[in-house]
Amino acid sequence: MRQLTRNAAVTIVAIAALFWIVGQYETALRDPRLLDGWILAAAMMAQLSYHVRKQLPALTLGRAASWLKLHVYAGYFVIAAFLMHTSFSLPETSLEWVLWILFMVVAVSGIFGLFLTRSIPARLQHVSADQVTFEQIGAARARLAGEVDGLMLNSVKNAASAALSDYYADHLYGYFRKPQHVGAHLRGSRYPLQAMCDDLDRLESHPNSKAEELLEKLKAHVVAKFDLDHQYALQGLQHAWLFIHIPATYCLIAMSVLHTMVVYAYSSGVR
């Protein structure tokens, strides 16, 4: 908490200093957009340092955790610098609109990603104590599907319960083969699982011992698959936001370079 307070205080002071310096620049009858534009460009380049650190894990460049903190707090500074550079108003030209949208995508995806990295691990841990790595979820799903197939084929041979076998063939066969209920998992809802278990319970009102055993095993597999889908959905989201944040960042940098060239191409000289 002490570290959080310190980092937040430093960021606020830096933002206040930016506003004061740009204010002084404007008071001197100079174009403040040139100054805050270059500060914004420099800060955006500094943001890339975290990405560089991640690409060079073998070098002794300090702990990635420290770089991430710098990335996050410098990110807040960049947002403040951007708002100042745009004079807290919406863009007027199409190039500015592209830049504005790209910046918003990067900033919002970054903040959303930060929220995800803080919230998803605890959610995953809460529901699934035994976590499977994202790359191994497919194999775990296939293993589970194979086990259920074996279970149901045996049940047909033993004539345990025709109702359960039919329900499996009609409703659960596909369930065990692909990730399901992604939306529910992202919302944190366990309603689909409850519905499936209720359906299974209703199939056999007076089950014999074989059917009862089969039912319990099938339900255990249904729950295991639901937990696996939960991990798939949340871990997938953990990875997916980066597919927006990183490409948008590179587009933003490219457009920023173009923006700078246009500004200087049409400027009347340094003021």
Binding site: K54, P57, A58, A64, L116, T117, I120, P121, A122, L124, Q125, Q131, T133, F134, Q235, Q238, H239
Partner: peptide, 13 residues
């Protein structure tokens, strides 16, 4: 595991 985001940066490093 309440902090790990399964990014595998540790494995890559």
């Amino acid at each position: 595991t309440t902090r790990c985001v399964n990014c595998d940066d540790c494995v890559r490093a």
